[in-house]
Each structure stands twice: as structure tokens, then as C-alpha cells.
């Protein structure tokens, strides 16, 4: 029994980490969900006893299933749902503003933004580099956002 459960945990974890390594954000979220499932299963079966449901009235002398792990798993399920929902809406937002859910595309996009900024403000030698950041913050505020507005509008249509 232990072996079978452990195998299942291992399989779920493997599938989850495979998805986690994908470059598609939606699959990455799927990966986190699967890993959460495998961990929930692990916590559940690591309960110290198996027996009847932990609900009064208990039978005389009957063994009760460990209620503590159940409480923990219950909490874990709810929290991981909350986190997943947050991630999904975050991806939605990323899609709306960048029209992509692919990590590599988004990285490219950011890379290009940085390059654009560097062209605008040539770095000076010396400690100046530290200062340049400060200057950039002002420029930065419109740069990506202007893109964001256009994309937002397109997405709304």
C-alpha cells in the first residue's frame, strides 16, 4: 500500500515538474497544481492512523482516522486554490497587455525594452551608472505603459 501511494505521489510530482519546466505560462500553472495535489496526497496518507471518520459519536474503542492531517490538507487545498486563481488572473492580465503567455516571448519583449532604454540614455563611465537608474525611472513610466494602453484597447475590442 505504502509503495503504491508513494509511486502515485512520485508520478504526480514528475508530471507537475515536467509542466513547470514548460515555457507556456498556463502549463506552468498546471504544474504547480499537480505538485500541490501530490503534496496533499502525501500529507493525507502520512496520517498516523486509519479508522473511522473523525466525527462524533465515535464507536466504542474504534480507531479514528488522524483528524490533524485532514485539517491541514483542507487548509492546503483552499490556499492552493486561492494561489492558483491568482496566478490564472495574473496570466490573463499578462496576456491582455502583452498578447502572449510564453515566457520566452515575454523575456524577449523585456530585453528589447531594456535595449531601447539603453539607447536612449547612454551609460556614462564611472559611478554614473548608479545614477542612471534614477533617471530611467522617470522615462520608464511611460515607455511600456504606452504599449500597454494600445494592447488593452485591442484586447477590449
Amino acid at each position: 500500500m505504502t509503495l503504491i501511494v508513494s509511486l502515485a505521489i512520485g508520478v504526480l510530482f514528475a508530471a507537475g515538474s515536467y509542466l513547470l519546466l514548460q515555457h507556456d505560462f498556463i502549463k506552468v500553472v498546471g504544474g504547480t497544481i499537480l505538485i500541490a495535489h501530490s503534496v496533499n496526497l502525501f500529507i493525507m496518507v502520512s496520517g498516523l492512523s486509519r479508522g473511522t471518520e473523525p466525527i462524533y459519536p465515535l464507536g466504542d474503542g474504534a480507531r479514528v482516522s488522524d483528524p490533524l492531517v485532514q485539517a491541514m490538507v483542507l487548509t492546503a487545498i483552499v490556499i492552493s486554490f486561492g494561489v492558483t486563481a491568482l496566478l490564472i488572473s495574473l496570466i490573463y492580465r499578462v496576456y491582455v497587455s502583452h498578447r502572449s503567455v510564453d515566457i520566452e516571448h515575454l523575456s524577449d519583449f523585456e530585453e528589447r525594452l531594456v535595449q531601447l532604454e539603453e539607447q536612449q540614455v547612454p551609460p556614462e563611465p564611472g559611478i554614473g551608472v548608479l545614477e542612471d537608474r534614477e533617471v530611467d525611472e522617470d522615462d520608464e513610466s511611460d515607455q511600456p505603459d504606452r504599449d500597454g494602453i494600445q494592447r488593452d484597447e485591442r484586447a477590449t475590442e
Binding site: I9, G10, V11, F13, A14
Partner: peptide, 12 residues
């Protein structure tokens, strides 16, 4: 992923 799963399995 298979390596990760194997480790998870062994630990569990």
C-alpha cells in the same frame, strides 16, 4: 521531471 518524481517517490 522523471528525476524529480523519483526523488519525491523515494522520500514519500
Amino acid at each position: 521531471a522523471a528525476f524529480g518524481g523519483l526523488l519525491a517517490f523515494l522520500v514519500a
